[in-house]
Design a protein around this nucleic acid. Structure first.
Lengths: 212, 212
DNA sequence: GTCTATACACGGATAGAC
DNA sequence: GTCTATCCGTGTATAGAC
C-alpha cells in the first residue's frame, strides 16, 4: 500500500475508535489491529499517538474554517448565524472525541493547545462581528458589552454541547437528534435580544430543529 | 495513625494532586508518596483508584446539597439565584478535577455516572423552579418553554465553566477571578428576561463581580 | 513500506511479614 | 494498620529482517 494510503487508513481508523471509545481508551496496538497493519508500521507513519490526535485536530480545523470567513461588506442576517452553527456542529460531531476529551488533549499536546487557542479566539471574534452586524441592521437590540457576554456564552455552549449531551444521558449522539437540539439551544441564547419579525422567525426555526 | 485519619489523608492528598495534574496523570503510587504512606497501605483503605475519585465526588455532593434545597412557600428573589450560583461554583472550584475530566470519569465509573445523572436532574429542576418563581413574582418575563431552555443553557454553563476557562487560556483558576467572571456570565443569561428594577440590579451585581 | 519480535517503563493491585 | 516486595498486565516505542 502506498505511503499516503496507509497514513490515511490509520487516521480514519483512529478517528472511528477515538469517537467510539474515547481517546484515552484506545491504544496504538488497537489502532494497528483495527487497521489491519502492524504496530511497527503505524510508528513508521506517525511519531507517536499524540501525533495522530494532532493531525486529526488539523483536519477538524479545515472543516470549520469556512464558518469563520466573513464576507467583506455583506449584511449578515439571522440565517447566517444558524447556518454557521449547523456547519460547525456537524464538523464537531464527526470529530467528537476532540470535545469529549478536550481538557486532557489540551494539557498534553502542546501544538494542539496553541491551535485550539487560536481557533477559539477566531470563533469568538466571528461571533462578536456577527452580533455587531445584527445590531447595526436593527435586528438585534443589545449594547456592546452584553453582546460580548452573549458571544462568550454562545462559545461555551458551542464548545461543550457534546460532553453535555453525553453527561445528561442522551444516547443518540450518533444520529442528528442531539445536534439539532443543541443548535436549537444556542439559538435560544440569541432569541431574547431579537426584534420582530426575526424573533418569531428564530423561534420557528428552533422549533423545526427540535422536530416539533 | 488511626484508620480514619489515613483515609482522610489519602483523600486530601488525592484531591490536591487530581486538581493540580488531572486525575488521569496521577498514579496511586504518586498519591502514596505524597501522602507519605506505602502503596500497600493505600490499598488497605481503598479498593482501587476509582474508589478514591468516587468518594471525592460524594464529598462534592455534600457541598452542593444546600444549593438544591428550596424552602417551601418562600418567595425567591434574584439574590437567591446568584447566592446559589456562588456557592456551587466555590464547591466546584475545590473539586475542579471532577469537571476537568468529567467525561472520562463519567464513562469509567458506574456509580459516579449514576450519581452525576441524579445531581444534574436535581440542579435542572431547581433552576426551573427558581425561574418559575421569578415569573410568578412578576420579576421575570418569560414563557414556560423559554424558561426551560434558559435552565438548560444555565446548567451547561455551570457545568463547564472550569474547562472553558482552562481552554481559553485563563491561568488564574486558583484565585477567585475566573470564578467571579463565570458567575457573572451565567447571570447574563438571565438578564434579558428580567424587568426593572431587577435588571439593573443584576447588571450592577455582575459588574461588581467582575471587579469594575 | 511493512513485518515480527521485543525492550522498557509504568501503573494497578496483591501477598505476606511485622 | 502499615510496611516491603513483587507480580502482572498493558502500552509506547524501537530494532532489525524482509
Amino acid at each position: 500500500m502506498a505511503r499516503r494510503d496507509t497514513r490515511e487508513l490509520v487516521l480514519a481508523t483512529s478517528l472511528a475508535l477515538f469517537n467510539e471509545l474515547g481517546e484515552a481508551n484506545v491504544s496504538t496496538n488497537l489502532i494497528a489491529i483495527e487497521a489491519d497493519i502492524s504496530p511497527g508500521n503505524l510508528y513508521y507513519h506517525f511519531r507517536n499517538k499524540d501525533d495522530i490526535a494532532l493531525e486529526l485536530f488539523k483536519r477538524y480545523l479545515l472543516h470549520v474554517q469556512p464558518t469563520l470567513e466573513l464576507e467583506e461588506g455583506a449584511t449578515h442576517e439571522v440565517e447566517d448565524l444558524w447556518l454557521r452553527l449547523h456547519l460547525v456542529f456537524e464538523a464537531m460531531g464527526r470529530f467528537r472525541f476532540l470535545f469529549r476529551d478536550l481538557s486532557d488533549l489540551y494539557s498534553r499536546i502542546k501544538n494542539l493547545r496553541r491551535a485550539l487557542n487560536g481557533l477559539l479566539e477566531r470563533q469568538r471574534a466571528t461571533l462578536i462581528t456577527l452580533i455587531s452586524d445584527l445590531r447595526k441592521n436593527g435586528v438585534m437590540h443589545v449594547n456592546e458589552h452584553d453582546g460580548v457576554m452573549l458571544a462568550d456564552n454562545m462559545l461555551l455552549a458551542m464548545t461543550y454541547w457534546i460532553p453535555y449531551a453525553e453527561v445528561r444521558g442522551d444516547p443518540g449522539l450518533a444520529d442528528g437528534k442531539v445536534l439539532s437540539a443543541s443548535v436549537s439551544r444556542v439559538l435560544h441564547l440569541v432569541l431574547p435580544y431579537l426584534r420582530e419579525p426575526e424573533a418569531s422567525q428564530v423561534r420557528a426555526l428552533a422549533q423545526t430543529y427540535r422536530g416539533e
